[in-house]
Amino acid sequence: MARILIRFSEEQVSEPIASQIIIEYKVPMAILSAHINSKGGEILAEVPDEILEKVVNAFRQRGVSVTVHKLIEVNSEKCFSCGSCIALCPVEAISLAKDSTVQFDKDKCVGSTCSVCVDACPARAIKSIKQNNSENSASNREKKS
């Protein structure tokens, strides 16, 4: 499974773009989190690897910004494995290894749409990576202007 972050602009939120793509391509898309209002929004979704490219292209053809999602970055040099973050993570992406080192599972993490752990880290070792400047969303902005 691959994670994609779909960003809708103010003009796009009123159109049923995601539903159309799901129906047209028969995509079993799991929505992990969504924040949408009249000003736009984003959906974090999971799609099977085999059709990832097809889905990403389908969104992009409709002018919607899609990024294959990257997430949360942990600076392992700063982290001293206190574990404050563990119980905060809603998807249990953080755990204690056998040697008591805090380990972070990138595949489970839902990324910057959640970020609940970021400001709870006393070592400031966790960073949320926003992807506003990704290549595709930049070209979309140009198209619109």
Binding site: F80, C82, G83, S84, S100, V102
Partner: peptide
């Protein structure tokens, strides 16, 4: 253990101090 029961509800719990560093 990572979880405790408070008022009959399971609550996940984190340590603030490092077991790894204590060892």
């Amino acid at each position: 253990s990572g979880a405790i029961t408070v008022n009959g509800k399971k609550v996940r719990v984190s340590s603030l101090s490092s077991l790894k560093m204590a060892k």
